Computed example of a mutant assay.
Amino acid sequence: MSQHEHHDMHDMAMTGRELTRNAVSATLHCLTGCAIGEVLGMVIGTALGMSDGSTIALAVVLAFFFGYALTVRPVMRAGLPLAGAIKVALAADTLSILTMEIVDNAVLLTVPGAMEAGLGSFLFWGSLAFALAVAFVVTVPVNRWLIGRGKGHAVVHEYH
């Protein structure tokens, strides 16, 4: 049995706790990239006095960039060229990052004053941390569903 076939069988047989563990791991990976981009975008947008919409747009673009980058780099180290690594990252991370960003920014927009709070404000940082935590909780089942079907982060496992 080839290594690829072994991974396919392993992913198909994954259920219950193992599937949930893998979904949590994939979501933590996604959260890392999203948090880097989200925090950087919010800090830049807030520091420059950008509008809420512009700040969120910048944060989302950076979240996708860093989220994909955290997948592309190890996949390239495994021997895939850049174009192939980008395709893997798009397949593995798009729905997860999208879910996380929609939830994260929706939560931020519902916290009164969060978007207007300054960088030195507990309200700013607390709201951002809370929004990312809620996004993580909502995204775990999405990743669990994807991995259970051999999609999402299951695509990356071939290159580890």
Results as ranks from 00 to 15, higher is better:
Leu48Tyr: 11
Ala35Asp: 05
Leu98Tyr: 11
Met9Pro: 00
Gly37Trp: 02
Leu62Ala: 05
Val88Cys: 05
Ala83Cys: 00
Leu90Asp: 02
Ser127Gly: 10
Ala133Asp: 05
Leu48Thr: 15
Met9Asp: 11
Phe64Trp: 04
Met42Phe: 15
Gly53Pro: 09
Tyr68Gly: 10
Val24His: 10
Phe65Gly: 10
Gly49Gln: 11
Leu119Val: 11
Ala69Glu: 02
Ala59Gln: 04
Phe64Met: 06
Met12Gln: 13
Arg73Met: 13
Ala114Cys: 03
Gly118Lys: 08
Ile102Asn: 05
Leu19Asp: 08
Glu38His: 14
Leu108Thr: 03
His7Asp: 07
Asp93Leu: 09
Leu19Asn: 10
Ala131Lys: 04
Ala63Arg: 03
Met12Cys: 02
Pro112Asp: 14
Asp93Ala: 15
Leu132Pro: 01
Leu95Cys: 06
Cys34Asn: 07
Val103Lys: 07
Ile36Thr: 06
Val61Pro: 00
Asn22Met: 11
Val140Asp: 04
Ser121Trp: 07
Thr55Gln: 10
Met42Trp: 11
His10Ile: 15
Phe122Trp: 14
Met100Phe: 15
Cys30His: 01
Asp8Trp: 08
His7Gly: 02
Thr94Ser: 13
Thr32Glu: 14
Gly79Arg: 08
Glu101Ala: 14
Ala106Trp: 10
Glu18Pro: 00
Gly16Tyr: 08
Phe66Pro: 00
Phe130Glu: 02
Val134Trp: 03
Met76Ile: 13
Ser96Pro: 00
Ala92Ser: 14
Met115Val: 10
Leu70Phe: 14
Met76Ser: 06
